[in-house]
Amino acid sequence: MLTESIEFSTTALAADARVLEQLATDGYVIVPNFMSSEHCQRLYSYSLGLGPHQWQQAGIGRADSYTTNSAVRQDKIRWLSSEYLLEQRYLQLMERLRLALNGALFMGLFDYECHLAHYPPGAFYRKHLDAFKGRSNRLLSTVLYLNDDWQPQDGGELVIYGEHGQVLETILPQAGTLVVFLSDEFIHEVKAGRRDRYSITGWYRLNTSIGGVVDPTL
């Protein structure tokens, strides 16, 4: 486990008015070089060093409707926790970003949850929404890519679709690229790749606590 202090920067997103304007106008934004290659390499190496027991098969749905379905989703995940230093540093980075987004765009983002995602060769995630209007407190989705030297022939792209099914963006999962989009607005999918693909996927959430229970099942 790394013990040195690791500092990340949110300058690329939080301080760039053009980037914030695109997020506010279009509902999504792609930020190349959000994180340095050095820091991405540390997170990538950390992911590679995790044992099989530290990953779980990703599922779909929530609470009583939660299930695994390999016809829809084939990645493995590990939820990040402040218990582990490198994971803690990333969570701190995204907390600073939360404050910056709230300050600039008044989004009312309450907290953040995220997990590492590992897509083995051939794995995919079919078209889906991260949230449904009126049924979730997930407001803003984020994806940070960790693989260095990813080439177009490697596949594994994130595809974001518009309201009429048109392709808005096809994003190569290149290390350091951050994608941010409204969770209940954009259908998206992860195409099958030819290499092991690592990323960190997360969601900024609204506070819909009832009786002290965060995001209760209604």
Rank of each mutant, 00 (worst) to 15 (best):
Ser141Cys: 08
Ser141Asp: 05
Gly162Met: 05
Ile171Glu: 03
Arg135Asp: 09
Glu163Cys: 08
Glu169Pro: 02
Gly165Cys: 15
Ser136Pro: 10
Asp154Ile: 05
Val143Gly: 05
Gln174Glu: 13
Gly155Ser: 08
Asp149His: 14
Glu169His: 00
Gly165Gln: 09
Thr142Tyr: 12
Gln151Cys: 12
Val167Cys: 12
Leu158Ile: 09
Gly134Glu: 04
Leu158Asp: 01
Leu146Cys: 05
His164Gly: 13
Val143Cys: 13
Gly162Pro: 05
Gly156Ile: 02
Val159Tyr: 06
Val167Met: 09
Gly155Asp: 00
Gln166His: 09
Val159Leu: 08
Glu169Ile: 00
Trp150Glu: 00
Gln151Arg: 11
Gly165Leu: 11
Asn137Asp: 07
Ala175Val: 12
Ile171Asp: 12
Asp130Tyr: 12
Ala131Val: 03
Gly134Lys: 15
Asp149Met: 11
Gly155Glu: 00
Ala175Thr: 11
Leu144Gly: 02
Phe132Asp: 10
Asp154Pro: 04
His164Tyr: 12
Trp150Thr: 07
Gly162Cys: 14
Leu158Met: 15
Pro173Arg: 00
Leu146Arg: 00
Leu146Met: 06
Val143Ser: 03
Gln174Lys: 11
Lys133His: 11
Pro173His: 01
Leu140Cys: 04
Asp130Phe: 11
Leu140Asp: 01
Leu146Phe: 04
Arg135Cys: 07
His164Gln: 10
Asp148Pro: 12
Val159Cys: 04
His164Pro: 07
Ala175Pro: 14
Asp130Glu: 12
Arg135Gly: 08
Arg135Gln: 13
Pro173Thr: 04
His164Ser: 12
Leu129Val: 14
Asp154Asn: 10
Leu172Cys: 13
Leu139Gln: 15
Gly155Cys: 14
Gly162Trp: 02
His164Asn: 06
Glu157Asn: 08
Leu158Gln: 02
Gly134His: 10
Leu129Met: 08
Glu157Asp: 12
Val159Gly: 09
Gln153Cys: 15
Tyr145Met: 04
Val167His: 05
Trp150Ile: 14
Tyr161Asp: 08
Thr142Phe: 07
Arg138Pro: 03
Asp149Glu: 06
Asp149Phe: 15
Ser141Lys: 02
Ile171Asn: 08
Ser141Asn: 11
Gln166Val: 11
Tyr161Pro: 03
Pro173Lys: 00
Trp150Ser: 01
Ile160Cys: 06
Gln153Arg: 05
Arg135Ala: 07
Asp149Cys: 15
Pro152Cys: 08
Arg135Lys: 13
